[in-house]
Amino acid sequence: MKEIILFIYPQKSSFINSDIEFLSKKYNVKTQDLLWNKASILPLNLITQFFFLIRNIQSSKVIVISFAGYFSLLPVLFGKLLRKKTLLILNGTDCVLFPEYNYGSLRKPLLLFFVKKSQQYATKLLPVDASLIEQVHTFDETIFIKNQGFKAHFPKLKTPIKVIPNGFDTDFWTYNTQFIKRKEFITVVSASKKSTAIFKGIDLIVNVAKQFPNKIFTIVGLSEEVQQEFKVGKNVIFYSFVKKEVLKQFYQEHQFYLQLSVNEGFGCALSEAMLCGCIPIVSNAGALPNVIGKTGFIIEKRGVDIVKKMIEKILFLTEEERIEKGIKARFQIENNFSISNREKLLLQEIES
Rank of each mutant, 00 (worst) to 15 (best):
N176E: 10
S195A: 07
Q249S: 15
V128K: 04
L77P: 04
N214W: 07
V206N: 01
A197F: 06
G221A: 03
Q119G: 02
I339L: 14
V189G: 02
L88K: 10
I63D: 04
F297H: 13
T177R: 07
N335H: 10
V246I: 14
T48H: 14
S195T: 11
I54K: 11
I133M: 12
G167W: 02
S59R: 14
F316I: 12
D140N: 07
I279N: 01
S60F: 08
Y121N: 05
S24A: 13
S240R: 09
V307K: 01
L222V: 08
Q211M: 11
I299D: 00
Q135P: 01
I41E: 11
E245Q: 07
D94F: 12
S352Q: 14
A209G: 03
L81W: 15
I63L: 10
T159E: 02
T196D: 11
V246M: 09
K294F: 11
S190P: 00
P99Y: 13
G233T: 03
F331D: 10
V62C: 15
K234Y: 02
P10A: 15
G201P: 03
S105Q: 08
S40Y: 12
S131I: 01
S283R: 00
E253Y: 02
L132V: 09
T196V: 15
G326C: 00
F78S: 07
L315R: 04
K85M: 08
S223D: 10
Y175C: 09
K231Q: 14
K30P: 00
A122G: 05
I327Y: 13
A191L: 05
L97K: 07
C278E: 00
L90E: 03
V291K: 02
K210L: 07
F250V: 04
F15H: 14
K309S: 12
F199T: 06
I143N: 09
K325H: 11
F15D: 01
I5T: 05
F297C: 06
I47F: 15
T218K: 14
R83F: 14
H137A: 04
M310N: 05
S131R: 01
E319S: 13
K313L: 07
E272K: 02
L345Y: 13
F52G: 13
P289V: 12
P43I: 10
L44H: 07
N37A: 09
G303Y: 04
L112M: 06
P160A: 14
F337R: 08
I145V: 13
F113A: 08
K234C: 00
N335Y: 05
Q135L: 04
C95I: 07
K193M: 13
Q49N: 09
V188Q: 00
V115T: 13
V62K: 09
Q249M: 12
V29L: 05
I63R: 06
S261T: 05
F114R: 09
D169V: 08
I198C: 03
P75R: 10
F266H: 10
A287V: 08
T86Y: 05
V115A: 05
V64F: 05
V262C: 05
K156P: 00
N284Y: 08
E312I: 06
I198T: 10
D19P: 03
L247C: 03
Q249E: 15
L74W: 15
I219C: 09
